[in-house]
Nucleic acid binder design. Structure first.
Lengths: 186, 186
DNA sequence: AAGTATAGTAAACATTCGTTCACTTTGTCA
DNA sequence: TGACAAAGTGAACGAATGTTTACTATACTT
């Protein structure tokens, strides 16, 4: 049943593409392509796959993980109806062309829950708003800090009382803005 | 040049599949499929795409974001040679079948940099090691806490001095283990 | 300026693709 | 038990796929 979809997902994970009908024949141990055809129709109806002309492609539901509700008071909502789905790549990254990852070193942003060893997703841009966490070059030194504005003057601040604010002697150049943090446990 | 690859990536992002040669014809404004054929060869050689038989598929390099070095002392390493590449989905999720996402509520894990509103990736499993952050049911109430062991007795602890440890009156059932946190900034 | 690799055109090809039709088996429910 | 829907078989089909070969135009090198 449903483990047909699992087989397709497994194939996809391994090959990074959907299997063709002939390949699904083997996957499902069928001997007629028509059987595959019908099954695919079901997956299309249930929203896991889609078709453009006769080209098969996965939908975001295909990849996505169920996002369950809040843990507080009572049971996390796992009911099928209430599920929201999320694809990590799509959720985290708007423009893959301008995005890159940076491994954080140091404890200057612990106040924001960004620790040493965490990975931040940075979007390249020269402009930022006060309050943004920016990757910047301050007096020729690279750093990851919070951008603040003091009237018109821009400066950098840590999220750790241990460090003082940094006022640029000469120049402060913004290179990118932190869009997200990710941290993996052990 | 390179923006051919960008076009393919854009197509992929929109359709969740690679374009066929005929579709690339239009993408690149070519009029011979052979031109496409040659270009695809290049992408295969440079490791962005791969072929199984005559089936084209993206590699992990195709999706991945450059992971640059540490920011501390000096310039983040952006040189092509030193790049490591990372695909978020692959990096964060081992087994998509048993994983789900949970939106965190409450401040009981702030000590670990897990804030209210963050999303955690949970892997379903009944067993966990002391020190793991677990989604558990303690005396019929669901919660996200750190699993500790006091001799043989298991109990739950917060990462916030505000809250006391929780010793189960009757039962403590583990439902899953937190593998990662992600937090998006506005 | 001559020579040569690179990039693109054009047409023809076997192969594989997804689809369709007619039929058979299996399972379910009244 | 009988009826009917669901699941699978088998074969045939046109259309689209990726590949190949031969040729042309453009750009680069020394």
């Amino acid at each position: 049943m449903n483990d047909r979809l699992t087989k397709i997902k497994t194939f996809y994970k391994k090959h990074r593409r959907l299997p063709s009908y002939s390949e699904m024949l083997k996957l499902f141990n069928f001997s007629s392509k028509n059987a595959v055809f019908k099954i695919i129709q079901k997956f299309i109806e249930s929203g896991f796959l889609k078709k453009e002309g006769s080209k098969l492609a996965p939908t975001s539901k295909f990849f996505s993980l169920p996002l369950v509700g809040l843990v507080k008071a009572g049971f996390p909502i796992l009911a099928e109806e209430n599920r929201e789905y999320l694809t990590l790549d799509e959720y985290l990254i708007d423009d893959p062309q301008s995005a890159f990852l940076l491994k954080v070193s140091g404890d200057s942003l612990i106040g924001l829950g960004i620790f040493d060893g965490d990975i931040v997703i940075i979007e390249r841009k020269k402009q930022a708003t006060a309050g943004d966490i920016v990757l910047a070059q301050i007096d020729r030194e690279w750093t990851l800090k919070i951008l603040k504005k003091d009237g018109i003057r821009a400066y950098l601040e840590s999220a750790n009382p241990k460090y003082p604010p940094f006022y640029p002697r000469q120049e402060l150049q913004i290179f990118g803005v932190v869009k997200a943090v990710i941290r993996k446990f052990n």
